[in-house]
Nucleic acid binder design. Structure first.
Length: 491
RNA sequence: GCCCCCUUCGUCUAGCGGCCUAGGACAUCGCCCUUUCAAGGCGGCGGCGCGGGUCCGAAUCCCGCAGGGGGCGCCA
């Protein structure tokens, strides 16, 4: 028996991978890798009505995108499979039988309607606890079997012992619950499908899971699970409950707060490295003030003792900032490559010409990458480098306002153009020189001329440096654009 | 209604009895750099939920209260 750490992430495929789930998966992953243990993926698909194939593949996709590769689980296999709960039904039956025979569980013949009515009554009566009454507890196993043989439907309930249930939570310390307040829970539905609380115990035990790290919405499930481990004679794992991720209004993060799925962040131009880095810092903190970590650094720095107890609000502004920082730090060619799909989609670039233009694109990114934080924003910030002619990308009242404000006229543009042409060589100095002279003679600064130009070209008052744009564009195209601009707005 | 968890700047957090006049980051504001815009550099604003204890000494320990969150399913 080795002391190897074995942790798992066990999503139910009823939707996409949520950032909250992603963080739970990440913490499990980091802990496993930090300790040299195994990270296991298991799919909890016992809710047949809501589980879908599409969700399963979306979860796999997101996990891989984030770089959270699992050591055991679907696709990769392992010694403790299968890793889909619906493929383990026989095992659950087997242990349910044991529980029934050892008297830890019993058949329950209450109908859904009866239970609903009971619950309603307890609510009305303001009962201290709204647990199941235990009505079927005393039906003997043999009697129950007879009734089932006659065609009656029955669920199986676990008999929760009336005692104090304690455990030492890795992140919260000693926690205790009163078994008297926990109703006997259904472990196998009348259709034979096990419920979550039961299936997890069987799977975690049989898969030799040593540490269960999950969201703190599971805290109150833990005592229920512990009594089952005990009844079954399994060794209980250590539990660690990570706090929730909240929306800006302080309630549990959900769709109405905006993007919550990992996939949406991928589509929104967030880099997986940035998301992982950001998520790691949500509820965990390293020693010292450092904030940027590669995955390997996270692995070596990670420690459960530095996981926070309190919930955290998901701050998409900080995520974006961090993402922008990753973009700025990446080398120009890498940025060109990661932006390429977005540029193609925006129609700025053709797929076929990417290869030949990559180097040029890197040059564009050198100047442009400081102005956008997400990849989807890239096209809007570099569109002014594309196309031969002057082309208004966004007709904006702002442009006219700038022109009016500065009393910009054709004369100024003509002056600048002729200055550029008189320079023996076209380069950045030529453009700067022309502007300088325009300011001296006509009183127009770079800001006066370039702000309306920039806005007309990009629709933004912020963006890549216009001087640098001219540098990349070359003389002919620079002049063409200045002329185009003048004829559109200054005639 | 009952049970459980949580509580440091607007947000993420450091802090584990004296190093705290509470540190860092995002956001925000100002300045610098730049004859543009970003980025970058520097600086400002801003916080220990409240009330009792314990102690020479409390953000740190204990007890109440308040607020927030989660759970009480034949959902996971």
């Amino acid at each position: 028996m080795s002391s190897e750490v074995r942790v798992r992430f066990a999503p139910s495929p009823t939707g996409y991978l949520h950032v909250g789930g992603a963080r739970t998966a990440l913490f499990n992953y980091l802990y496993a890798k930090n300790t040299g243990g195994k990270f296991i993926l298991r799919i909890e698909d016992t809710d047949r009505a809501r589980s879908t194939e599409e969700s399963i593949s979306a979860i796999f996709r997101s996990m891989k995108w984030l770089g959270l590769d699992w050591d055991e689980g679907p696709e990769v296999g392992g010694a403790y499979g299968p890793y889909f709960q619906t493929q383990r039904l026989g095992t659950y039956d087997e242990y349910a039988k044991k529980l029934l025979e050892s008297g830890h569980a019993y058949y329950c013949f209450c109908s859904q309607e009866e239970i609903d009515r009971e619950r309603k009554e307890m609510e009305d009566a303001r009962a201290s606890s709204q647990k199941y009454s235990g009505k079927c507890r005393n039906i003997s196993l043999s009697e129950a079997r007879e009734r089932i043989a006659k065609g009656e439907k029955a669920a199986i309930r676990f008999k929760v012992p009336a005692k104090e249930i304690k455990f030492d939570d890795i992140v919260r310390g000693e926690l205790s619950f009163d078994g008297n307040l926990i109703g006997d829970m259904v472990i196998v539905r009348s259709d034979g499908i096990p419920t979550y609380n039961y299936a997890v115990v069987i799977d975690d035990a049989l898969m030799n899971i040593t540490h269960v790290l999950r969201g703190d919405d599971h805290i109150s499930n833990t005592p229920k699970q512990i009594v089952m481990y005990e009844a079954l004679g399994f060794k209980t794992p250590r539990f660690g409950h990570i706090s929730m991720i909240l929306g800006p209004d302080g309630t549990r993060l959900s769709k109405r707060h905006g993007a919550t799925s990992v996939e949406e962040y991928d589509k929104g131009g967030i880099l997986p490295e940035a998301l992982v880095n950001y998520l790691a810092l949500l509820g965990w903190s390293p020693e010292g003030d450092r904030e940027f970590f590669t995955k390997d650094e996270l692995i070596s720095e990670f420690s459960l003792s530095r996981v926070a107890k309190s919930p955290a609000v998901f701050d998409s502004t900080k995520l974006k900032w961090m993402n922008g920082s990753y973009i700025r730090k990446a080398d120009d060619l890498a940025v060109a490559k990661m932006c390429a799909p977005y540029l193609i989609e925006a129609g700025l670039l053709k797929k076929e010409e990417l290869e030949s233009k990559l180097e040029w694109l890197a040059k564009v990114m050198k100047t442009a990458k400081t102005s956008f934080d997400t990849l989807v924003d890239a096209p809007a910030h570099v569109n002014l480098f594309f196309g031969e002619e002057y082309e208004v990308k966004k007709d904006d009242a702002e442009v006219a306002k700038y022109i009016l404000d500065k009393q910009l006229t054709n004369k100024v543009i003509d002056f600048i153009i002729s200055e550029i042409e008189t320079f023996p060589e076209y380069n950045l100095a030529a453009v700067k020189g022309a502007i300088k002279k325009a300011q001296k003679t006509l009183g127009f600064s770079g800001h006066d001329v370039f702000m309306p130009l920039r806005v007309s070209l990009t629709g933004h008052s912020s963006g890549p440096g216009v001087y640098e744009m001219f540098d990349i564009l070359g003389k002919e195209r620079t002049i063409a654009r200045l002329r185009g601009f003048a004829s559109k707005y200054l005639s």
